[in-house]
Amino acid sequence: MLLSLALALSVQDVPANAGPVGDPVTGELPVDPYQQDNANAGARPFKGDKMAKAFGGKDGIKRITDNLVVGITSDPRIEEIFKGQDIVRLRRTLFEQFCYILNAGCNYTGRDMRSAHKNLGTQMADLNALVEILQNVMDQENIAFTLQNRFLAKLAPMKDDVVDR
């Protein structure tokens, strides 16, 4: 009992000294306050449920965003960008964003694209690499190429907000 108390205290001590404290359940780190709004997703959602169905609903979209996060954090071209970033938060907000845009029944609670990508130092080649990884992930889910492009058409206008220079 004493031991576990001591352990619990020491665990709590570490983050306090090392930096911000993560969420006790998810480990997600806090960010500066901002106004939550679906408009932060950077694109209007599709109408109807055709796209949501094609992407396998929430479950399919979750697989896509999880695999996308695995892909972008392990691709030698762009993995460096995500070192030191809150991957737990990225995994959650990316899912919310895709789910919201695909009209699969989610709200997007993350920051707007410009704030979320500020100071990441991303270049055009990084964005193109991400697009290629996303295309691979969508291929894995057997999503028709025309529907992949329809979805990418929602993301493409965000270029100026997600590329730094």
Partner: peptide, 10 residues
């Protein structure tokens, strides 16, 4: 001013 980066086009 930055390092040139090779490739990267879709």
């Amino acid at each position: 001013a930055e390092e040139l980066r090779q490739g990267g086009k879709l």
